[in-house]
Simulated assay, not measured.
Amino acid sequence: MSCGIVWKIRTGSAWRDVPERYGSWQTLYTRFRRWALDRTFSAMLTAVQADADATGDLDWLVAVDSTIVRAHQHAAGARKGGTARRRVMPWDVPAEG
């Protein structure tokens, strides 16, 4: 059964497209959903990470390259037209008196 779940995740296919050799797609989906809700997948990941870390096979160094971090095309620039408009807040207005 778990091989069917792995096949589905690896291929990105729809649940209905899982080959019959793995069993009923409804059963696979039900089991996947149950494991996701009861954190079985989190426990599996933690166990694999702990095992790999204990044997020295895990490198915890993570680097993020800006070429893989996408930003919206307008995220880098200021407003067009020169000066930025600033919203006037109540505390910006001098008190009368």
Rank of each mutant, 00 (worst) to 15 (best):
G56I: 02
G81E: 05
A47Y: 03
R39P: 05
L37W: 00
S2D: 14
R16G: 02
G12K: 06
T40Y: 13
Q26P: 01
A75D: 07
R34K: 15
W15V: 06
G77M: 04
R31Q: 12
G81N: 04
T27D: 06
S42W: 00
T30G: 11
A50L: 05
W91L: 14
I9M: 12
K80C: 02
S2L: 13
A84P: 04
A63I: 04
M44W: 02
R34C: 08
P94S: 08
S2C: 06
A71M: 12
I9Q: 14
V64S: 10
W35H: 15
A50I: 01
D65V: 04
T55E: 07
H72S: 10
D53W: 01
S24L: 06
M1S: 09
S13R: 11
A63D: 07
H72W: 06
A14W: 11
T55P: 06
W91E: 15
D92M: 15
F32K: 10
V88E: 15
R33F: 05
W7D: 14
S13E: 15
T40I: 10
H74K: 09
A71F: 12
D51H: 03
D38H: 05
T83G: 02
C3Q: 15
L45I: 15
Q26T: 15
D51Q: 09
V6D: 11
